[in-house]
Design a protein around this nucleic acid. Structure first.
Lengths: 207, 207, 207, 207
DNA sequence: AATGAATGAGCGTTCATTCAT
DNA sequence: TATGAATGAACGCTCATTCAT
């Protein structure tokens, strides 16, 4: 036994672990300083390794950023799978609202996503990763919506999912971590729930 | 006698004009390349002047960015003043939705605002300018909402303005310029209008 | 009456006054920041005039520095003329020691002279101005020394003046303003006086 | 097995050598041009390396200057240790005078020290390094003085060391390399020796 | 006598990347 | 795997100077 965790294959496992470490450290750095202060050197420093070594794991900055994104965004989807496992459709829907809106006030979410939105307008790799992630998110949401009101067509459910998810994302800028309206989170959730439920049940959604 | 004896920077018309030119060129550059590719040198190049001369007009990058922000954001507020000048409150409200959502699909809006949101998490000057701008925007919106349903208290109207404006902003990322759902703009407007009007007239808004 | 002071010839007198103002402001700036942080812009700012105007009075940085030096150094000589006017030679000598050593602890002296010494090694204009000033100073000192002990030849007196003035200057670095041994000033004066007087009266000075 | 597994910067002999080279080249440049003409670029050029590489060895100008200072000042202290190794106290004392005063006329000494004196008034790092160096120097001097005249208290010896070392330093400006009185060096030494010895043996030194 | 405008050079610093070891 | 060394480009900024007004 040469390390903390049981390594099936010594050096290979070690490399995989360190890659993960670096990705998490890098995400923190991005959140703390913004992409325009994000550099390979700073990541290496924060990760406690040398620049040369960092570039052994991630040969270019673009590749590191792509890996960070995949790592970070994928983790957000896991939560929905969990919610889908119990309760009525309406309960699930309300749980999603609760979960997502409450997440907005975490520093990670508040800072990370605007960074991604901005980058996605200029870096192709980011655009794709972000779109995929939101696509998956909306898919789950549309499924739930379809179950809440089975009278809706698949397209109508997708439109509602788009409107609802977009509406929620927009609050990041106002009720997120250290934003002027953070304390309004509970009231926003109250308004959001009734507004979205009314839309699902009684709204006039284009076919 | 043309006025004060002591002339200050920008007192020549030539200089004033060039300052405006630079601000517009700079905004375009920011939109085209993102803040992380935005440099004083590139602005100078794009404006057809020398770096040193650019820094005569804007002694620091921060000051240039601040001036850009004030310039850009103030122009958005002018539109609302216009809308307030005619029609019933409900017509004004719907006009705001129309105006703002349709604006999202312009390249300027789609790209400029996420850039500002991201920056606002890391640069104090930007945070302040952005917060002020949204505060003004919400104030106008709350006024209209209060007129649409006079039964609402001032606080309720402000909460609705927050929820509605945030919801709209969130669509930037999905139906903006060259975004996957750009073509859904009309449908989103249709959903938004009824959803927000229902909230204003019949919603249960926390007191 | 157009100004504060009676001006013989309006604009001419005004120009002369402002030149003096600038020179004093510039000296302060040099003392505060050191020559390597001394710039035309900062002088202009400190003097409350525009860069272009400063360069009307002093067309180049070198000329400003030269003028500053002449202005500053000449003022130091006036003090000696005063001392020569009364008392026995020995009293005059001791008064010089008192005056000069006590001067070392003033911020002006402590900071200004090392700046000049350093510059004099690299800028011809400064070398000359400094050498002239010290030459005049030593001349006065040698005269006094010759009167204190008339048995000394002129050359011996000059050698003593050199040794004594150099010895005193050296203390700038150690007992000057905010230096580690500032509080030793009185003791240093005590040691200096007896040491130098012994040298003058009984020393074996090369012929 | 060559030692630790984790190598640090400068662990290759190649890098160590180059660091020393740079320090010497930098000192020469400082002496030749003065601090106000001393730049990282010029050091890199003089050392025959690229700017980026220089800043790999010395990440900031301040760190380079500090390293230069430590390098230069430490070499001065070695000389005293040597002198202490033989001869009577009086012989050692006279050897110090000889050594130090003669050193003044070397270009290195004449130019380097005024540069340091000037800098020490504006840069904290320099102040500290310089004060430490002189403190060490005075300590050795005080020890010798105490041995020359054991009747002196430790405090008296330190006061004498201060007066004597300051007096000698002051001559840098007048009898140093290419200074007007360089040829007087021998005479100055003659005067200094008798003057200082008299002070040590018969002076009235404050207790 | 004074300001506004503009230039070109230089500065310290950060950075992504490459390569030898 | 990992470090040390090196490069070349770019960045924000300061500056002395020139010139038109």
């Amino acid at each position: 036994m040469t390390g903390k965790k049981q390594a099936k294959q010594g050096s290979y496992q070690k490399g995989k672990d360190k890659r993960q470490d670096v990705l998490e450290v890098a995400a923190e750095l991005l959140i703390e300083s913004g992409y325009h202060n994000f550099s390979m050197r700073k990541v290496a420093d924060a990760a406690g390794i040398r620049l040369g070594n960092l570039q052994y794991y991630f040969p270019s900055k673009a590749k590191l950023v792509k890996a960070m994104l995949d790592h970070a965004l994928s983790s957000y989807l896991d939560a929905f799978v969990e919610i889908r496992r119990q309760g009525t459709p309406e309960e699930q829907f309300l749980a999603v609202i609760d979960k997502v809106v409450n997440d907005l006030s975490k520093k990670r979410t508040t800072v990370f996503f605007p960074e991604v939105w901005s980058l996605s307008n200029h870096e192709k790799g980011v655009t794709q990763a972000m779109d995929e992630m939101y696509e998956n998110y909306r898919k789950v949401l549309a499924d739930i919506i379809g179950e809440v009101n089975p009278a809706l067509s698949a397209l109508q459910a997708r439109r509602l999912a788009l409107f609802i998810s977009a509406s929620i994302e927009g609050h990041t800028i106002f009720i997120g971590y250290r934003k002027p309206w953070t304390k309004e989170t509970a009231n926003i959730i109250h308004i959001a729930k009734q507004s979205f439920l009314w839309l699902i049940m009684q709204g006039d959604i284009p076919e």
